[in-house]
Structure formats: C-alpha cells, structure tokens
Design a binder for these strands. Structure first.
Length: 277
DNA sequence: AACTACCGCAACCGCGATATG
DNA sequence: TCATATCGCGGTTGCGGTAGT
C-alpha cells in the first residue's frame, strides 16, 4: 500500500503564490506562529494550499531576513568548499550562510557557481577535442569513464578528506547530540579567514583558484565541463562508504540537517583542526 | 518582428527521518 | 514495538524572462 498523500490534491491550488495568499500566510504566522503543524495551517487560514507548499513558501520567501541574490565572493567560497567536503547537503550549507535558504543555495550552485568554477565548457571542449563530446550525457556532464587525471586536485582532496575525518572526530567528541542551527557559533571573521589562507598552502591555492577566472584551466586541463562529484570521484557519502567507522561513530555527520559552525568549520578550514591531532 | 534556445528561479514531488499515540 | 502522521530534504520540473538567430 502506498503512502497517503499529505493533502487532498484535487482540492489544492498549485503554482505561483498570489500576493493575497502571501499576505494571508505571513499575517497568520506573524501572529500565531506555525502552530507546529503545517498540514493543518492552510485550513485554519482558508488557503487552498498543501501544508508542504505553505511551509516551503514561508521558509524560502516570506520568512524575515531572507536574502535573495547578491552572493558575495566569501559566500561563493564557503559554498564551494562545503560542497566539496559534504556534497549536496544544501540545508547544512545554507545554515552557514545567514539569510540564505537551501533552495537558494541549491539554485545558485546549479545555475551560477558550477559555471563559475568549472566553466560552460562544452562548446570549448568539443572545439578543443571533438572526441570528448561523446563521453558526456548531452548536458555537459561526463560519464564515469574517460575523465582525465586531475593532478591539481590531489592535494585538496586529501586535505579535505583529512579535514572531514578531523571534523567528524571532533563531532564525535563534542557533539554526541544532534546539532542545532540555533546554537550556531559565529562565523570566523574575515581577518581570521585571511589568516588561515595566509598560513596554509591548500587554502592559498584554493583562494587563488576561486579568484582566478582561469580556474577551469587548473581544474580541467582539457577544459571539459562536469559535475564536481564526477571530477573528484568523491563526495562524503561515497567516502563514508569507504570508511564506515567514521559514519558509525559520528552519526551526527550523516543525520544532522542543522550542523553548527563548530561542526562544519573543519570542512571549511581543515588546517585549523590539524593542530588537534 | 517572430521564433527558438537558454537561463534563473519558484514550486512541486517523492522519500527518508522523526515524532507521536 | 508498531503504525501512522508530519517534517524536512534533495532532486526535478515548469514557467517567465531574455538573448540569439
């Protein structure tokens, strides 16, 4: 037997939200909160919307202090590093960016950051090497085979993996309980981050890479567009599979959608944790 | 000017995790 | 302990706007 639908789909409005619907929802939540039950909420306020839809609208658009667009270089950097470290855990990544939603970060990554870091290279690639064209899926993505070696990434991967191990060890030691974004620690200052870059060859390399419009040349010697996962042959999930101990002993890393800064920072600034070996 | 392709974003969908009775 | 309800997440889709032809 299949799962029961969360709402009566035949009697629910779909598609874009009208200003009136937004006003109703916002006004009600401002006055009463969500009441801890999104499913019941639309009925209470007379909205012909699914509870899930209301929740999404609130979280991604109506909630106070939401910022749309205008991602800074620093935010790009954080997103990039976290993506490499933990993969597409958008809620975790977004939790480190005040005012950003997971949906925003996800869209931003898919539409802009990927291109920024790896370029829109399909045409260039096929021009450079027509054979490469046959390896993709038609959307600029690579198949599993035929990916050239990425010597420039060897150190960063090792470094990040090490950072994750350290981070998870730290989680295991300090965060036996589920994380909570509301307890997130303050982000390091820009000055502190710069200090990290200054001291760490890995950070320096990435810092310059991120600022370098020719980054794709470094990452992709043959200028071929791809998903990060495919480039690295790596993401946290896969890594966890390779070393189950890490997962078993630090469930927080796999379950928590609200990792705090202390938990995430090892992924962003691994060298800070090297000292604690 | 008309058509097409592409892009960015908002919203939807399905499923696993968690809470509750 | 189990069944059910709800939450929250990541992936995907669809629409409107814009650029290119």
């Amino acid at each position: 037997m299949g799962r029961a639908p969360c709402c009566d789909k035949a009697n629910v409005k779909k598609g874009s939200w009208s200003p009136e619907e937004d006003a109703k929802l916002k006004s009600y939540i401002d006055q009463h909160g969500t009441g801890g039950n999104w499913i019941a909420l639309p009925h209470k306020i007379g909205l012909k919307r699914c509870g899930k839809s209301c929740r999404l609208r609130w979280l991604n658009y109506l909630r106070p202090n939401i910022r749309h667009g205008g991602f800074s270089e620093e935010e790009d950097n954080i997103i990039f590093r976290l993506y490499i470290s933990i993969g597409s855990r958008w809620s975790i990544i977004a939790s480190q960016l005040p005012g950003r939603t997971d949906n925003d970060v996800k869209n931003y990554w898919n539409t802009k950051l990927k291109k920024k870091f790896f370029g829109k290279q399909r045409k260039e690639t096929s021009a450079a090497d027509p054979k490469q064209e046959t390896l993709g899926d038609g959307h600029g993505n690579r198949g599993a085979t035929g990916w050239p070696q990425q010597p420039a990434l060897t150190y960063p991967i090792d470094h990040v993996c090490h950072g994750i191990r350290q981070g998870q060890a730290s989680m295991r030691n300090e965060h036996g309980v589920r994380g909570d974004a509301s307890n997130s620690l303050a982000m390091p200052s820009t000055v502190a981050q710069q200090q990290i870059y200054d001291d760490d060859p890995f950070s320096l390399a990435w810092s310059s890479l991120l600022q370098n419009s020719g980054a794709q040349a470094l990452l992709c010697p043959t200028s071929f567009s791809t998903e990060l996962d495919e480039i690295l042959g790596f993401n946290l999930m896969k890594m966890e599979g390779a070393d189950r101990r890490l997962v078993d002993e630090s469930d927080a890393a796999t379950k928590s959608e609200n990792m705090n800064w202390k938990e995430v920072s090892p992924f962003l600034y691994p060298n800070m944790y090297d000292e604690r070996l």
